[in-house]
């Protein structure tokens, strides 16, 4: 079995508003998958359910055969779109924190990436810019040896130059067995690293396909396909 994430009839409502409408989706091991869709399409809702931050109204979702819980949290490394770090901590406090709670966290890797980006481990997070905080968070998340990395808008807040470094970091720091689920609407920046795309809109999956197939069949970049599918 190569399945990592499986959704069956997954539905999530906020009051009377349907955020995810009977979604069926399978994500396999060893893939870099783009979760693409306009704002309010249900990307973050899906990501939150995978991370156990939301409970679905109906349907099931499993990661490695487990429903979200302690077991899945051990193997999922999650970068939310929010900065979740304690402002009063220093970078090395946070590294210590991750080391304490995640068995798969590799501090050596984290320190080496910090060094390359010129971030001082004894700096307090309070003194850092938003972009630097995002870099620190990404470094923490990528320093785990997880089965599934979920990156929600990982490059939205950083400048284009840092984007390249970050994407590089993502690709060079995960092992072939792991899967990366990447949500963004900055498609042109990331389409070269994707193996697969999932288009999501109004709580429905519009399209799932390997990037190769899609390019071959349509002869266009993912970015232009996205613009066509989601034309306003």
């Amino acid at each position: 079995m190569n399945t990592l994430v499986e959704c069956k009839d997954l539905t999530k409502m906020y009051g009377t508003k349907t955020a995810l409408d009977h979604i069926n989706l399978t994500l396999e091991k060893g893939r870099i998958i783009g979760l693409l869709g306009p704002n309010g399409s249900g990307k973050t809702t899906l990501i939150k359910i995978i991370n156990g931050l939301l409970t679905p109204n109906s349907g099931t979702l499993t990661v490695s055969g487990m429903t979200p819980g302690v077991g899945t949290k051990k193997i999922v490394s999650y970068l939310p779109e929010r900065t979740y770090l304690n402002e009063w901590m220093k970078v090395n406090d946070i590294i210590e924190f991750f080391k304490t709670f995640y068995e798969d966290f590799n501090p050596t890797k984290a320190y080496s990436m910090l060094g390359k980006l010129g971030i001082n481990p004894t700096d307090k997070l309070k003194t850092m810019s938003k972009g630097t905080k995002e870099k620190v968070q990404l470094i923490l998340v990528m320093s785990r040896k997880a089965d599934l990395y979920i990156l929600d808008e990982p490059i939205a807040g950083v400048d284009p130059a840092a984007r390249d470094y970050i994407l590089n970091t993502i690709i060079s720091n995960y092992d072939e067995e792991a899967t990366i689920l990447l949500s963004t609407h900055l498609i042109s920046d990331i389409e070269n690293i994707l193996d697969e795309v999932v288009f999501i809109q109004n709580g429905h999956i519009r399209l799932t396909s390997s990037v190769e197939d899609l390019r071959e069949k349509q002869g266009k970049s993912i970015d232009s396909i996205f613009r066509e599918v989601f034309k306003c």
Partner: peptide
């Protein structure tokens, strides 16, 4: 608050 994103994704019950 935003810190909840970390707290609730720690592998704890």
């Amino acid at each position: 608050s935003d810190e909840g994103y970390l707290t609730f994704t720690l592998p704890v019950t």
